[in-house]
């Protein structure tokens, strides 16, 4: 299981800027949908290799925040820096090519293609091969990278099956695999554990904790257990704003947080 999940073979453009501080830096990000402020004035920074959990109730704006970071939406106001580079108005693919990755809350896969094809596509997307008109040979480097990823998310037995035929949990695993292609430097996981069985959850936690140390991530997670096990720090969101940030252990014991978020589940009763 501890096979190297992610290769560092590929050159990442903009990698030279990595020395200057943060992997991800958000300044005053606001996103309006008509009159609704889905997120307002969010300022956040995450260091390279740092693992951050984002918690918050439904509609708090967590997914919208991800969409602003990846460029799926342009923020109404604010600035996004990725490893020191201002990427606020970059199209999504430019950010991905710089080492940003994401998963989707609702699986967004190619259901008509096989598992292997899905992962192979993800590997092509971040390589120069994406326009290649030549079919891969069996020893193709990207195919081998795809094989490693298939194994890393435990889908080897199903690698030739159509994705549409997979069980829900397997689709979630594939969703994670797609975000680990190439040489990721920072990954956004949007509720990867939602709907998984306890075994699958444990599996996911192993995959996340055994990622190479230089890969930082933000994970949106409702399950406090999963979140606190994989993350060093926590950001709490409510109504589109950040209302608390801190180390995982601080947040866990914070009475206000327990009141608001954990409710009775953890400490009380």
């Amino acid at each position: 299981m501890n096979a190297p999940v992610v290769s560092s073979r590929m050159n990442v453009p903009g990698a030279g800027n990595a020395s200057s501080g943060n992997a991800l830096e958000l300044r005053g990000i606001t996103k309006m949908f008509g009159a609704l402020a889905a997120i307002s004035d969010v300022t956040l920074s995450v260091k390279p290799g740092e693992r951050r959990a984002v918690l918050g109730s439904n509609g708090a704006g967590k997914t919208t925040l991800f969409n602003c970071i990846t460029g799926d939406f342009l923020p109404t106001a604010g600035l996004v820096r990725f490893f020191g580079e201002d990427v606020t108005v970059f199209p999504p693919h430019e950010r991905i090519r710089r080492g940003l990755r994401r998963t989707y809350q609702i699986s967004s896969l190619f259901t008509g293609l096989s598992v292997m094809d899905n992962i192979y596509l993800a590997c092509c997307g971040v390589s120069r091969n994406r326009f290649s008109l030549v079919r891969p040979r069996p020893d193709d480097a990207l195919l081998q990278a795809a094989e490693i990823l298939v194994e890393a998310v435990h889908l080897t037995a199903d690698k030739d099956r159509l994705v549409g035929e997979l069980a829900y949990g397997q689709q979630r695993q594939l969703e994670v695999a797609l975000a680990l292609s190439g040489a990721p430097r920072f990954v956004l996981f949007d509720e990867p554990a939602a709907g998984l069985s306890p075994t699958e959850r444990a599996d996911l936690v192993t995959i996340l904790t055994s990622l190479p140390a230089h890969i930082g991530f933000i994970i949106i997670e409702h399950d406090m257990d999963v979140a606190l096990r994989v993350a060093d720090s926590v950001t709490m969101m409510h109504n589109g704003r950040i209302f608390k940030e801190g180390r995982s252990d601080e947040i866990e014991s914070d009475p206000e947080v327990q009141e608001l978020y954990l409710g009775g589940g953890h400490a009380h009763h």
Partner: peptide, 14 residues
């Protein structure tokens, strides 16, 4: 074919 089926995901793959 990926672009045909899911352009948004394709952009998120680079």
């Amino acid at each position: 074919q990926g672009v045909r089926d899911n352009p948004r995901r394709m952009a998120a793959l680079g």
